[in-house]
Design a protein around this nucleic acid. Structure first.
Length: 181
DNA sequence: TCGCCGATGTTCT
DNA sequence: GAACATCGGCGAT
């Protein structure tokens, strides 16, 4: 496949989660791109007890059961948003949680949203990432193929992903479905 | 540097 | 009523 081919998103979260590392995710507002390189992801599948899709299709998880390449955004702990990219064949309930990015465009937009933290803390967590990019429930279901969100291929060769246990879950904690570079 | 804890609202049992 | 794919502040090492 070519370097900017996103067809791997159709292959399911276990394939897509490590492969998304190095790709650049941007939220586009009024022509300005805000975002950066994906450096941490987690895979979730319908048969996975830690996944929101585990108990079947509900109003909240409806997008997860739709076609790949759309955003599944949810609100948690009463104050944070988290964003996923839906993966796999239409209807299977797979998604990849985007846990962290390395910002490279729109830094001046992100900083005040995050209350001017140290550079390293701008988007190094799923809640922080959504705050920095301005992602809310209003973005649930939108496509990463544009125009409001874009996913661009890596600019540099990406090192081999490191697999480790997922963060903040209590079910299926032994699965090494968290991927970092 | 580590670990505990409160904030805060939606979803599930 | 409890759990939750989290974060930042605080006090103890």
């Amino acid at each position: 496949m070519t370097s900017n081919d996103l067809s791997f998103l159709n292959k399911g979260s276990l394939i897509a989660a490590p492969q998304l590392l190095g790709w650049r995710l941007y939220h586009v507002v009024e022509g300005q791109r805000v975002g950066g390189m994906i450096i941490e992801t987690e895979a979730y599948t319908q048969s996975d007890a830690a996944s929101h899709s585990y108990r079947g299709r509900t109003p909240r998880t409806d997008v997860m059961f739709g076609p790949a390449g759309h955003l599944y955004v949810y609100f948690t702990y009463g104050m944070h948003h988290c964003m996923n990219i839906v993966t796999g064949e239409d209807g299977i309930g797979d998604a990849v949680l985007i846990r962290a990015i390395l910002p490279d465009e729109g830094l001046e937009t992100m900083r005040p949203r995050r209350n001017n933290p140290p550079e390293a803390n701008l988007a190094n967590g799923p809640g922080k990432l959504c705050q920095a990019l301005g992602v809310t429930l209003a973005d649930n279901g939108k496509s990463v193929l544009g125009p409001e969100f874009v996913l661009l291929p890596p600019l540099v060769k990406v090192s081999k992903p490191i697999a480790s246990p997922r963060i903040g879950i209590t079910k299926a904690v032994d699965r090494l479905w968290r991927f970092t570079i």
